[in-house]
């Protein structure tokens, strides 16, 4: 029941983001969207993902986007063009996704492919081999340590990229 309400608000927020022209309102609405997503993840018992979504999506991205608005201004100055080809692509992709839904295993099914691959081994081994209660942390930091290293490298590269871009522009002005 709460899930349906959350999805309804998600839909309203997304429509609002599409229609509103003021960028400040768009940033705040996308923050709300992330918070609603965090609520949805909590209902799905994915608390680690919900925590990340609340901290990153609703928290820091909103703040960083507001800081970016300080640079570019609040008004969307782009022309209001008709976007027929993008709409066609989005509708086509949406129809294909909906077409694929009946082929998916039922929600929460223990026979779903994702639950019969390596997940049972991780859940079984974690208490004895790694010895920590949170299996999500064990997977992220230990079994999939390479992926997390890659993610940290991505964040590092993003930071360096922003610094380089802005440092280059400033030198040009002076």
């Amino acid at each position: 029941m709460i899930g349906i309400g959350l999805l309804l608000f998600l839909l309203l927020t997304a429509t609002g983001i599409l229609l509103v022209r003021n960028l400040f309102a768009v940033v705040i609405l996308s923050g709300i969207y992330s918070l609603l997503m965090a609520g949805t993840f909590t209902i799905l018992d994915a608390v680690d993902v919900a925590f990340t979504e609340a901290a990153v999506g609703a928290g820091i991205s909103t703040v960083l986007l507001l800081a970016a608005l300080g640079v570019v201004g609040q008004e969307d100055r782009g022309r209001n063009r008709r976007a027929l080809i993008p709409i066609a692509v989005v509708v086509l992709a949406g129809v294909m996704l909906i077409y694929a839904v009946p082929e998916m295993p039922p929600f929460g099914s223990p026979e779903a492919p994702i639950h019969v691959h390596v997940a049972p081994q991780y859940i079984e081994e974690t208490p004895s081999v790694i010895g920590i209660p949170n299996v999500v942390t064990a997977v992220l930091a230990d079994y999939r340590g390479f992926d997390t290293l890659g993610e940290v490298t991505v964040i590092f590269t993003a930071g360096i990229g922003v610094l380089l871009l802005f440092a280059g522009r400033r030198r040009k002005y002076k």
Binding site: A67, V71, T148, G159
Partner: peptide, 23 residues
């Protein structure tokens, strides 16, 4: 490694904020 992740993430976010506001 969690400590390493935390330090990098925190400093990158502060760096991005500082750069944007300076600009």
């Amino acid at each position: 490694i969690e400590l390493g992740v935390g330090i990098t993430v925190a400093s990158v976010m502060i760096a991005i904020y500082q750069t944007f506001t300076a600009r």
